[in-house]
């Protein structure tokens, strides 16, 4: 961690004007970057300068800037969401960089995530995986009293661990195979752990895995890069539970 107040950086940013265009690496100077800034604020300042200089600012997705919406994300110096463990890009602060650093910034790369512009990608595939079965089939109204079905605390806690997924896509970006198993596994696992989700656990696992396969993600080879970069520290234990649920669904 640097103690300097301001630092100068050289940014190398992958730019791409539109979905089917070629991308190229552009170099920008980021001068007088306050170390209290967040990474996205640093990009804001660079963008302000680019705009005033008559250039197209760097497009990047973001919204909450609190690490919870899952909108932001880029591969920074070879690592999704940058160098800090358990941290989204919006929560990464510039004090983790040193004066003079060169910073390479790239979009998530995966066949299933098309680049829209610069660092912005289309993660619609995640929505489709959820639509395939990432829910409990109940309609509004008519639910029994919330306390009518006790849920062991450790089950609820484990379900919450999985449910913490923010759907940012860093797992896919980090996976050497661009696989979406951590994302899919987290949802299947959350709902399989809760008694409310048990009735359709099998159907859900089969349907969600089938959807995931169709969307062009690669296949998990247990490289564990996903859990290493997950900003919510979601464990591959949930992939194992998905495998279990899927195999149960297939064979029994």
């Amino acid at each position: 961690m640097t103690t300097a107040k301001t630092i100068h950086l050289t940014l190398k940013v992958v730019r791409q004007t539109g979905p089917d265009q070629k991308s190229n690496l552009e170099t920008y100077a980021a001068r007088n970057v306050s170390t209290d800034m967040s990474f996205l604020e640093m990009l804001d300042v660079v963008n302000e300068d680019l705009t005033l200089a008559g250039q197209d600012p760097i497009a990047f997705d973001h919204d909450c800037r609190e690490g919870i919406c899952g909108m932001c994300g880029a591969v920074v110096n070879g690592r999704p969401h940058g160098p800090q463990e358990g941290t989204t890009l919006c929560q990464l602060h510039m004090r983790h960089f040193e004066d003079g650093d060169e910073v390479v910034i790239e979009p998530w790369r995966s066949r299933a995530f098309k680049v829209i512009k610069d660092l912005v990608v289309d993660r619609g595939a995640f929505d489709q995986i959820i639509q395939a079965g990432g829910y409990i089939s109940i309609n509004t109204g008519g639910a029994p009293d919330a306390n009518s079905l006790p849920v062991p605390k450790e089950m609820a806690d484990q379900a919450m661990d999985a449910a913490a997924c923010i759907g940012c896509g860093a797992c896919v970006a980090a996976c050497p195979n661009a696989s979406a198993m951590l994302f899919t596994g987290a949802k299947i696992s959350q709902l399989a752990l809760l008694p409310q989700g048990r009735p359709e656990a099998k159907r859900r696992a089969a349907a969600m895995v089938a959807a995931m396969d169709k969307l062009g993600f690669g296949n998990c080879t247990n490289e564990r890069e996903c859990e290493a970069v997950c900003p919510k520290n979601i464990s591959i234990v949930h992939i194992a539970r998905m495998n279990r649920e899927f195999l149960k669904a297939g064979f029994f």
């Binding site: 109204g141 639910a143 006790p150 609820a156 449910a163």
Partner: peptide
Amino acid sequence: DHCVAQGVPFARDYGGLL
């Protein structure tokens, strides 16, 4: 009631209740 039925993992006590 509805959210619990949807699978929202609310915090629980050791007895399993909310």
